[in-house]
C-alpha cells in the first residue's frame, strides 16, 4: 500500500531560509528547523506524492533517509497523520552514512525542535527568598531550588 504523507497546512508558520526550513507550530508553540534534506522531504509532503516519489524528487539519498525525515517531521507534530516507519532509526542511518564514508553528513535529514519560551522565562533571575520562580532555572543562585514559587537555598547544601 502506498503512503501519501501530508504535512500540516493550518496552525503553522513556514519560513524558507537559504538552506533550511523553519516551522512555527501555533498549536503548541514550538519551533522546528529542517535542514535541506528534511526540508525537501517536507516540501513534497502534500498528499499527492507517495514515499517513492518523495525519494525520487527530494534530496534524500535512500528510502531510509526519507523514512527518518518523515518520522522526525511526524514526531514534531507537523504531519496530518503520524508516519510510522518500519525502517532504521536516525542513529542507524547516520551510522551507515558515516561508516560508508561515501556521503557527506549533510546528506542526512536533520529535524531540530524547541519549545518557544513563555515570556517570564526570558526575564532576569530571582534572588533567594523572593517569590516568583517557576523552576530552578529562574533562581540567580545556582545552588537554590524553587520551592513553592520561592527561590530557596539551604545552608551548606543546595539543590
Amino acid at each position: 500500500m502506498s503512503i501519501y504523507p501530508a504535512h500540516r497546512t493550518e496552525g503553522v508558520i513556514v519560513k524558507k531560509l537559504k538552506d533550511e526550513t523553519m516551522i512555527y507550530d501555533l498549536d503548541n508553540h514550538s519551533a522546528t528547523c529542517l535542514n535541506a534534506v528534511a526540508g525537501s522531504v517536507w516540501d513534497l509532503c502534500d498528499g499527492a506524492h507517495d514515499v517513492d516519489a518523495i525519494l525520487e524528487q527530494s534530496l534524500a539519498q535512500d528510502m531510509a533517509s526519507v523514512e527518518v525525515a518523515l518520522g522526525q517531521i511526524g514526531q514534531a507534530g507537523l504531519l496530518q497523520q503520524e508516519f510510522i516507519s518500519a525502517g532504521p532509526t536516525r542513529r542507524e542511518v547516520f551510522g551507515q552514512l558515516i561508516g560508508g564514508a561515501r556521503v557527506a553528513a549533510i546528506a542526512a535529514p536533520s529535524v531540530l525542535s524547541m519549545a518557544v519560551p513563555a515570556a517570564a522565562q526570558a526575564m532576569s533571575c530571582i534572588g533567594d527568598g523572593v517569590f516568583g520562580c517557576a523552576s530552578v532555572a529562574d533562581c540567580c543562585d545556582p545552588d537554590s531550588i524553587c520551592l513553592g514559587g520561592v527561590c530557596t537555598s539551604f545552608p551548606g547544601g543546595g539543590a
Binding site: T21, M22, C33, L112, M114, V116, P117
Partner: peptide, 18 residues
C-alpha cells in the same frame, strides 16, 4: 546556520508566543 541561529534567538524572545 541560519535556522539554528533563529532558534537560539527565539529562545530569548519575550513575546514570541504572542
Amino acid at each position: 546556520d541560519q535556522g539554528e541561529a533563529i532558534m537560539g534567538m527565539l529562545d530569548n524572545c519575550v513575546g514570541g508566543r504572542l
